[in-house]
Amino acid sequence: MGRGEPVFLPEARLHLGAEAEVTAGTWFDLPAVMKQRRARGWRHPDLDERLGRQRLLAEARILLRLHRAGLPVPALLDADVDENRLVLEQVEGRPLIDVLRDASVDDVQPLLFAVGSTVRHLHAQAVTHGDLSTNNVMVRTDGEVVLIDFGLASIEYDLERYGIDLHVLDEVLGASHPDRPGAMEALEAGYRASEHAGEAEAPGGTVPSAEDVLERLGLVRSRVRYHG
């Protein structure tokens, strides 16, 4: 962002979290959101600044990587490392959590199949999301699934991280949407059906297969039940 007239014009705060503040507005007259990372008061300022810069750069690089691969993620419009903020395309639609809670939406199985397929496409790029909740999946008016909020995403080749990614969705669907039976099964079916999404080989390693990830999901579930 330049130092003259601001090119992002804020309109409304969307979210204020521990990590960042998200504001809706316009960027050169385009609907956009600004994600401003917040200082963590309990950390030394120099350390906080360094970690914040690293995290912002990592998020920006992952978004560019996924956008180039054709994945449904918000376009990165601008990044200001000095000010610790990103400007992203505003995704029009509804969060998946709202769709699943909408009693007028009867059959959600095809939608959840699409979510599973989209997550497999994400994993095929050697990227784990880190916070795959139903708040971080948007559904456009045409039904397209878009993944948002990559603040905790990372490049990964460790099978465990992929299993944990799916387990977050599994836990959320079970806890927040118990009135949607078969939700996770539909999601897993979509994940499995997209086994050959993108390249299995990625720079730095080999992405685990869909079957291996689903098997690891089962192991993660077992561990959680045992310790619970």
Results as ranks from 00 to 15, higher is better:
Leu30Lys: 15
Asp149Trp: 02
Asn84Trp: 01
Arg3Ser: 15
Asp149Arg: 07
Ala197Asp: 01
Arg161Lys: 15
Asp102Met: 07
Gly204Thr: 08
Thr134Val: 06
Pro181Gln: 10
Glu188Tyr: 04
Asp158Gly: 13
Arg43Glu: 10
Ser222Lys: 11
Ser117Ile: 03
His129Asp: 14
Ile164Cys: 13
Pro31Phe: 01
Thr134His: 02
Ala210Leu: 12
Val213Ile: 09
Leu47Ser: 12
Met138Trp: 06
Leu111Met: 12
Arg38Ile: 09
Gly163Arg: 06
Lys35Gln: 12
Ala39Asp: 15
Thr26Gly: 07
Tyr157Lys: 14
Ala153Arg: 08
Ser117Tyr: 00
Leu217Ala: 13
Ala189Phe: 01
Glu215Pro: 03
Ala202Trp: 03
Leu147Val: 11
Met1Asn: 13
Glu211Met: 06
Leu57Thr: 07
Asp46Ala: 11
Gly218Tyr: 07
Pro45Asp: 03
Pro203Lys: 07
Leu147Gln: 10
Val172Gln: 09
Glu49Cys: 10
Leu152Phe: 02
Arg3Gly: 11
Val115Asp: 09
Ala79Arg: 04
Leu9Glu: 08
Val81Asp: 02
Leu147Trp: 02
Pro45Leu: 03
Leu96Ile: 12
Phe150Pro: 08
Leu86His: 02
Glu185Asn: 09
His177Thr: 14
Ala79Gly: 06
Ala114Glu: 03
Glu49Asp: 14
Leu112Ser: 06
Ile148Tyr: 01
Ala60Asp: 04
Glu199Ala: 11
Gly116Trp: 01
Pro110Met: 05
Thr134Gln: 06
Leu187Arg: 04
Gly190His: 00
Gln36Leu: 04
Arg13Gly: 15
Arg223Asp: 14
Ala186Ile: 05
Ala39Glu: 15
His227Cys: 14
Leu111His: 07
Ser194Pro: 02
Gly163Asp: 05
Glu59Leu: 08
Gln125Thr: 10
